[in-house]
């Protein structure tokens, strides 16, 4: 190593270090404008989640407490994890015929990976994904949910 190289090494080294320090120093001075962190529990009111965000499976009910689930178990078959368990019952139609209907839609949130395959599989768009994400509970059993509301029944005309 010649003397010239020796000093040019020092010069380029110091210059590269100064360039790096310029970047961090710049951020230090502009820190109030460049913040990237969010103060999560405080910003709950202004927090906007994407509309397609997949947080949990819900069953949509209209104002008359009616859902669109026929109890066909397509979602149960589509689910890779055994998250969904559908219990069906037989209702009597006005003509006196027996008709298969939904009794209980059991949804295991603790097993769900939010893959959306059940929603894709549903022929009547009865279930959908909700953009909620605060699922912490103190007891695991609270994560096993019953999705059809009490007293709800299938909407007219849904086959």
């Amino acid at each position: 190593m010649t003397l010239k190289q020796y000093f040019s090494n020092i010069f380029t080294g110091v210059k590269s270090l100064a360039t790096g320090m310029k970047v961090t120093g710049g951020y230090f001075l502009r820190h109030h404008k460049e913040k990237i962190t969010e103060q999560y529990p405080d910003n709950r009111d202004t927090l906007v989640l994407a509309e397609r965000f997949r947080g949990e499976v819900i069953m949509t009910h209209d104002d008359n407490n009616e859902h669109a689930c026929t109890g066909c178990t397509a979602c149960e078959l589509a689910c890779p994890n055994g998250t969904i368990k559908i219990i069906t019952k037989f209702d009597l139609t006005p003509e006196g015929k027996k008709k298969k209907a939904l009794d209980t839609f059991i949804y295991h949130l603790e097993l769900c990976t939010m893959c959306n395959l059940c929603v894709e599989a549903c022929p009547t768009s009865a279930i959908t994904m909700a953009p909620t994400f605060e699922h912490s509970v103190f007891d695991r059993s609270q994560l096993i949910k019953k999705l059809n509301k009490p007293g709800s029944k299938i909407r007219e005309g849904v086959e």
Binding site: T24, G25, Y27, F28, H31, E34, K35, I36, T37, Q39
Partner: peptide
Amino acid sequence: KVSSWMQLRLGPN
């Protein structure tokens, strides 16, 4: 505080 301001964070608050 210095580290958090250089790293675009808020730091302890």
